[in-house]
Design a protein around this nucleic acid. Sequence first.
DNA 1: GGAAAAAGTCTACACCGTGTCGATTTTTAT
DNA 2: ATAAAAATCGACACGGTGTAGACTTTTTCC
Lengths: 204, 204
Amino acid sequence: MPGHHSARSRRTTERKGDVRERAILDTCEALLAHKGYDAMTVGDIAQGAGITRGALYFYFGSKQEVVTALVARTVEHLWERSRVTAQTDEPRQAIAAAMQRTVELWNEHGPVMRTAIDLSLTVPEIGELWKHTADLFIAAITAVLERAGVQAGAAPDQASAMARALCWMIERTFYHASQESREKLQEASATCEHIWLTSAGLIT
Amino acid sequence: MPGHHSARSRRTTERKGDVRERAILDTCEALLAHKGYDAMTVGDIAQGAGITRGALYFYFGSKQEVVTALVARTVEHLWERSRVTAQTDEPRQAIAAAMQRTVELWNEHGPVMRTAIDLSLTVPEIGELWKHTADLFIAAITAVLERAGVQAGAAPDQASAMARALCWMIERTFYHASQESREKLQEASATCEHIWLTSAGLIT
DNA sequence: GGAAAAAGTCTACACCGTGTCGATTTTTAT
DNA sequence: ATAAAAATCGACACGGTGTAGACTTTTTCC
């Protein structure tokens, strides 16, 4: 195999611990999906990852730290995706694209998203992560509303405040629908899209 | 003192335990307000109510049962209030009245409402209570939308589905705003009202 | 390829909050 | 006044968390 020893990547071989760490996070995600946060014990996570509790504490300081890392991983994936997505200028297209991306994200990582929301209050780190994500979303919605002709500003009937409310509508609606089924999620998405369009004045 | 021994009320004197039970619930509400559910221990509740942990378990089987009872009390209060409120036929008035009532409720019992939402997943009893409350709300919104001319039905752009999304929008927006201040809550209410009106086609 | 260092792992333990139990005291009804 | 019911307490057992120190494996570097 080609041994390009020159400045390739900072670390040539992957640490064993990196694999374990990923295993821990993957196990955690799986457990969240079918036990929920409360029922999930750090013993469970360790066992799933093939180590003992003691060893797990070498990687993470607490149960909360594990799920914080998992949320961070998921949310960074989300940021990545929205950064890459081409921005279209046509409001209708922008809205449809945003909703589609969101559906995919929730289909893939619903349990993690729900857990992140649930723990936003009690785990400050997760609260920050989620708040930042929401702010990105709100900024995007605001931009679309303004481009569609809604007056800029923070008053209750202006773009910024409306975008915030629409963001929470989408979050909560997806939160519930993603517990049901993919079909429900798709329907929920259509409903949110319709209200978003109406609020933007794009549907008479 | 007047001893009207005849059939007055099923129970003539209030049991001592009834007072304690109320004290427990009141203490719980206070603790939720400034410690949050996780940080609140049943020792804390017992102490606040002037008894020991052991005694508290005479009244409630667990910490969860205590807050379930508290949520039930609050939510029944809410049902009461919406039952009594006169139903107006004019959509604009109905919307304004509903939002006003909701603001008051969250101002008075914000911490309990937030806790109820947080625990809906993990505590089935609370989930039921909250689901029922949401259904009442959704039915009311649906009725208003239909009276305003939105087509009845469950498709994404019809009254029922839209009402559900609007309900979650209001829930979540109030959830966040009630953590900030009364002013924010009032603004949030205005924003939700505006989107509701727009969705109903009452604002061009 | 072999030692020293770093990284990873394990078992045992101490702590804290929960919920249970049986004995005891207070309240209530007659 | 007294017996039954209601309420309270202290002590205990259990389970999950997080820590400590000894031990083993992997990585690094010459």
